[in-house]
Design a protein around this nucleic acid. Structure first.
Length: 729
RNA sequence: GCGCCGAUAGCUCAAUUGGAUAGAGCAUCUGACUACGGAUCAGAAGGUUCGGGGUUCGAGUCCCUGUCGGCGCGCCA
């Protein structure tokens, strides 16, 4: 609704200017303080210079003529008070008809939803399936999830992809651990999760059994899972590499086996039987690798599901290999002539793409990017180009059809409301994974071909992301290149203090160097086992939230829904922390800050929503709840005090804030907006009782504005930020 | 060396992308009614927006330059 008023006002202003032969940028803005007005135009200031006249005079002239027009206006402009003020150095300030605007909003809802045709793909999470997720992955997933939610709010069809690198060295490292790490070390790592195992054979058989029985993942938060076992194992393997001369050969052979793919017919039990008897072959190793990746993936899905994060499809690297995505992309790149094979020089024998023509890469010493190595294998960036082309619907076969995956259901799930935990196992929704057989196309399983693609990856991947974008451009798709967007954000790191707290808690040492001790933060590292695991942090948060609820409980009360309340608060605190600050700022993780529930935190926002809900519950009990229609009617011909209007107006700006947040990929704007709303509400809450208002008139005014607030804050929290609003706190 | 990012209150961060008096939280101090929940609210104190030039009606924001810190720039993934 505000959009409409602003648009109409801009058109009106434009008309006024052109009729006088003037030209100036016509952008209507919102003044910083409400007492200045609701909308403002600063164009007279710029105009004054080009015309050589004082800005206030110009503004005055325009104001008079605008007032005349507004008096007879209809449509959106009729929502403006036909009185235009000139203030400051020459701002034109406008006021809205307050009650009319609010009653319209109560009747129509937050924003009139317009369907937008462009399909948008958001790729996020993308955790290597070889160990538990840590808080760095959480920032990625939460930002990606909030982006997807905001895009849906704006009316776009959105597809969320979670890319699974199931054939890379990271998975290979863990497989090496299972097969070749000296037995005592393997057993030690495995026992942290499976206390009974005593040998390599038992570890592998236990894995196969649990895989078969579906016991690798615990629904209960806080129980150790398979990904926790890998978290222990992985650093052991990397340490072993350092002083084992044969390690790199083992690693290479496992990697090669993984790339060969797992046979369809063979079970993990059979593969493990072959491996423990020493008769294992490459495809048995591949089968084991696939199972390791799948088990970790299921753990990750559960971790993210606890935060209300869902996906539509899981593209697997193994399927990209099997389906020959790279071969197809390679052919397209050759046809377009944007890659060449080097005959001599340091890149002799490699296929390279030249970046020298792109301004983005100007000044680079070596502006060539190798896509195919001299041994004929493709680089990661090469595969990424192929994948990106598929996402954009540009990976075409010779006959012009899209080169595509097959798809098979991976899991069923349900989610009770937009911010509820995701329950895997059964439910109406299906999460698909890719398959190497393109004939597998279940009804409703159609993916890729996005008009716009957001890749959520941290800022350190900027260079390869630019190369991928450049390849799309070089293939002759400048528009698609523009629509390939790298959503870059800074990493999550640990303060040395946080590292020491971890050490104390786990009884180990990460051996920080003296230089690291002096730094403001230390990078997390799966290879060192250095990091805060996502599930562990959430479990700690839930425990703290539970303690906080108990503290506030009246004597003798024992609510049955305590676990779900605690969960909601923990998720709110965690998700808010991830979106609160700008994307370009390193998140230096601090336990005290993460566990805070007061002040600028998720629970503060949740509390404001719970309070607002409580007001309406009490009103209902007293038979005074009313309806939006009644409030709208009552508000129509009344003067609304400034402070109530301030809250209402801020609520109305929400769609504009979402639009801006998406355009700039700064979701801290949305978080800040929500906090401002909550803060304004809390203040009014103290000053303006609704149930015990002095008069019916006052009650209806407050009730109407608070109703709008409740609607707005609930939408922002549950629908956009994915933060649940508990019944009670 | 080249490129990207950051530097704002004691600490952690905002600031409608060039607008009007630079705002929050934490920490410190003071106060809040038999009222719909005190995870709250009101108030005090805290600032040469890293330094130096420039652009203009107007700069925390843009340009140049310097300092400090972080991260990229593989035939790794």
């Amino acid at each position: 609704m505000l959009f409409a008023v602003r648009g109409a006002l801009e058109t009106l202003l434009q008309g006024e200017l052109t009729s006088r032969g003037w030209s100036s940028l016509v952008r209507v803005e919102v003044p910083p303080r409400r007492d200045l007005g609701d909308l403002a135009w600063a164009g007279a200031l710029a105009l004054a210079k080009s015309l050589g006249q004082p800005p206030r005079g110009l503004a005055q002239e325009l104001a008079q003529s605008l007032e005349a027009k507004l008096q007879q206006a209809s449509g959106p402009l009729a929502l403006l008070v036909p009185k235009v003020r000139v203030e400051g150095p020459g701002f034109l300030n406008f006021h809205l008809r307050r009650s009319a605007v609010i009653s319209r909003a109560l009747a129509e809802g937050l924003h009139a939803q317009e369907e937008r045709p462009t399909k948008i793909i958001v790729e996020h999470t993308n955790i290597n399936p070889n160990k538990a997720a840590h808080i760095g992955h959480l920032r990625n997933a939460v930002l990606g999830d909030v982006l997807a939610r905001c895009l849906r709010f704006l009316g776009y069809p959105v597809e969320v992809q979670n890319y699974i690198d199931d054939t890379g060295v990271q998975v290979a490292d863990v497989v090496v651990g299972f097969l070749f790490l000296p037995e005592p070390q393997l057993v030690e790592a495995a026992r942290t999760v499976w206390p009974g195992v005593a040998s390599r054979r038992e570890v592998l058989q236990e894995f196969a059994r649990r895989y078969r029985e579906g016991e690798l993942v615990n629904q209960a938060l806080g129980e150790a899972d398979f990904d926790d076992l890998c978290w222990q194992l992985y650093p052991q393997v990397t340490r072993w590499y350092e002083d084992e001369p044969q390690a790199s050969a083992k690693k290479a052979s496992v990697l090669h086996a993984l790339e060969g793919g797992a046979p369809l017919g063979k079970s993990l039990d059979e593969a493990v039987a072959a491996l423990v008897s020493g008769r294992g072959e490459a495809h048995d190793v591949a089968r084991l690798g696939a199972a390791v990746a799948e088990a970790n993936l299921r753990c990750h899905l559960l971790t993210m599901g606890r935060l209300g994060i869902t996906y539509d499809v899981l593209p697997h690297e193994s399927d990209i290999l099997q389906r020959g995505f790279w071969q197809r992309a390679f052919a397209l790149l050759q046809e377009s002539g944007c890659i060449r094979k080097e005959a001599a020089g340091k890149n002799a024998g490699c296929w390279v793409m030249s970046l020298a023509d792109s301004p983005e890469f100007a000044g680079m010493a070596d502006a060539d990017k190798i896509l195919v190595r001299s041994n004929g294998t493709v680089t990661y960036t090469g595969k990424d180009i192929a994948y990106q082309l598929w996402k954009l619907g540009l990976l075409r076969d010779a006959d012009g059809t899209c080169h595509d995956f097959g798809y098979v259901p991976f899991a069923r799930f349900r989610q009770e409301n937009p911010a509820a935990p995701v329950l895997y196992g059964e439910g109406p929704r299906i999460l698909y994974r890719t398959s190497p057989d393109p004939s597998q196309k279940p009804a409703g399983a159609s993916f890729g071909q996005g008009g716009k693609v957001y890749n959520v990856i941290d800022v350190r991947q900027s260079y390869p992301q630019k190369v991928v974008k450049e390849a799309v451009r070089a293939l002759g798709y400048p528009q698609a290149a523009e629509n390939s967007i790298h959503f870059a954000y800074e990493m999550v790191a640990l303060t040395p203090k946080a590292v020491h707290q971890l050490e104390a808690q786990m009884g180990t040492s990460f051996g920080l160097s003296p230089e690291e001790e002096k730094k403001p933060f230390v990078e997390m590292s799966g290879r060192r086992g250095l990091g805060v695991k996502a599930d562990e942090l959430l479990a700690t948060l839930v425990a703290e939230a539970q303690a906080a609820i108990r503290e506030r409980l009246p004597q003798g009360e024992h609510p049955t829904d305590l676990p779900s309340r605690a969960r909601d608060i923990a998720v709110g605190a965690l998700r808010y922390q991830m979106v609160r600050q700008g994307k370009n700022r390193i998140l230096a993780f601090d336990f005290a800050e993460a566990l805070a529930f007061e002040g600028d935190t998720g629970p503060y926002l949740q509390y404001s929503a719970v309070r607002a809900k409580k007001i309406f519950e009490k009103l209902k009990q007293a038979g005074l709840a009313g309806t939006p229609q009644e409030d709208a009617k009552a508000l129509t011909d009344t003067a609304l005090p400034d402070d109530l209007w301030e809250l209402a107006f801020a609520c109305l700006r929400t769609p504009e804030v979402v639009e801006k947040a998406v355009a700039s990929l700064e979701f801290s704007l949305l978080a800040g907006h929500a906090r401002d709303l909550a803060q304004t509400f809390h203040n009014l809450y103290h000053r303006y009782p609704v149930l015990h208002a002095a008069s019916d008139h006052e009650r209806v005014l407050r009730r109407g504005v608070f109703r709008l607030f409740l609607l707005t804050i609930t939408t922002i929290l549950e629908q956009l930020l994915g933060i649940p609003v508990p019944q009670e706190m």
